[in-house]
Design a protein around this nucleic acid. Structure first.
Lengths: 132, 132
DNA sequence: GCGTGATTACTCGGATACAAGATGTCCGAGTTTGAGCGG
DNA sequence: CCGCTCAAACTCGGACATCTTGTATCCGAGTAATCACGC
């Protein structure tokens, strides 16, 4: 069980956009260089963020990706869900009656983590970065 | 990001041992039937639990797996760590200065979940099952 | 000066290749129980 | 009744086979800004 690298790339890209250029579009090449990823792969990841409405993409010359106006509301959980999906971490597919107590316990613990991630915004981290 | 089926099998096996036979050894075939897994695969999983000291295995006729004496202290987190490993869910391998704030935020959230799992014991669930 | 077209710098999306890990199977080896058998 | 042997029922562990998923690349298509050219 690991978070995928794609999630890591997505989080770092969001943070970079927030710190460096909250309004101007940034090309995928520039973003890719900073994280040592291939531009095409990063583009594939960012497409997911576009579909979830966290960033917008501008085609053509001087194009690139930029944050949406309400970007300060975006939490870690939003980004993670966009990349990893929204399904639960644990699936009890054993057929043993209606309610699986193990499933309930696991989901309950998972929600603790999600709550923490929901209260953690990119804007907060970006602020720490600029102060530093 | 998903918990593996192996973790699911391990949790269910532990629960079953706790409910049905806290002291007598149970054969791997019987355990496998209830979860619709092949005995050899389940055996491979249970070997990990043996190495982590949560169950013991008895060879020979009437052999099988049984819980260790202090099984009431075993938490969900112990079992998960035995199967999934103890490493963090998130690795920021981007080279950008010493402390990655994203990494810190992720680990912090992860610890919330681990705390919940550490406080959830198999014995608790087993008790609910028998009352029911 | 101004419109028009070509060029350039981008993103988008699908198809594909590759690697790693999860999942599952097979088989030989070792171990304990218990039954059978001979003394 | 005792002790020996042997078979049966198990687990153990490594070596495979398979399948899914994450990771990454390639390429053609579309799009917008910019530049060049001709009127």
């Amino acid at each position: 069980m690991k978070y995928s690298k794609a999630t890591n790339y997505a989080l770092h890209t969001m943070l970079h956009l927030a710190v460096a250029a909250p309004d101007k579009p940034v090309g995928v090449q520039q973003l890719a260089e900073q994280q040592h990823v291939s531009p095409t792969y990063l583009s594939k990841i960012l497409t997911k963020l576009v579909k979830e409405g966290m960033i917008t993409s501008a085609s053509g010359a001087n194009g690139g990706y930029s944050l949406v106006p309400h970007w300060k509301d975006i939490s870690f959980l939003d980004i993670i869900h966009a990349i990893e999906g929204k399904s639960s971490l644990f699936d009890c597919d054993v057929t043993h009656g209606p309610g699986c107590l193990i499933q309930e316990a696991m989901v309950s613990a998972e929600e603790k983590m999600e709550e923490a991630l929901r209260n953690q915004t990119i804007a907060e981290i970006a602020k720490k970065m600029t102060v530093d």
